[in-house]
Computed example of a mutant assay.
Amino acid sequence: MAIMITDECINCGACEPECPNTAIYEGGVEWTWAGGTKLTQVELEDGTVVDGNEAQQPFSDEFYYIVSQKCTECTGFHEEPQCAAVCPVDCCVDDPDYRETVEELTAKKTWLHDE
């Protein structure tokens, strides 16, 4: 599963630099698929192809947020999710809406970085 940031976030920013996939963004900041990855374009579930550098709308305007489609729970990089390890208020938690196996997380890591 991916990690999510709850509304208990104090906006300290400790999590953002720890993410090997650049999946964490400050509230209100647009994100890109290419940021921190080798992706140049992405085909979305509806078949739309998006340029990897095209700015995407933020998922939160108030708190740091994680782009679940880029989160691998640090699989292939670290033994545990680094955002959760450094969060001083324990607001980086499992996202119940994104359940993924280790194999799926490993495949996502490969898709983001190695293909």
Rank of each mutant, 00 (worst) to 15 (best):
Q69D: 15
I24T: 05
E16P: 00
P17M: 07
K109F: 10
A14D: 03
A107S: 14
T40S: 14
D95H: 01
C71Y: 00
Q56T: 02
F77C: 08
D7G: 06
K108I: 07
D94W: 12
T22F: 12
P17Q: 07
D7H: 13
L44A: 00
L44P: 01
L44K: 14
L112P: 06
V49Q: 01
C19L: 03
F59L: 15
C74W: 02
V89K: 04
C15H: 01
A23S: 15
Y64R: 09
G27W: 08
C91W: 09
D97G: 02
D114T: 09
N53P: 00
E54M: 06
V89L: 04
T32F: 11
E43K: 13
T6Y: 05
I24R: 10
G52K: 01
D114Q: 09
T22H: 10
E103I: 13
Q57W: 06
D97L: 13
E104Q: 15
D51M: 09
Q57I: 07
T40A: 08
T40W: 07
E79Y: 12
V49T: 07
T6M: 09
T75N: 13
T110S: 12
A107Q: 14
E104L: 14
D90E: 10
A84H: 09
D94R: 13
T106P: 02
Y65M: 01
A2L: 03
V50Q: 03
W111K: 14
L105F: 11
A34N: 13
Q57G: 08
P58S: 14
K70Q: 05
A2M: 03
E30V: 03
H113W: 03
C19F: 07
G27V: 13
N53V: 10
E115I: 15
Q82T: 10
N53T: 15
L105S: 04
E16I: 15
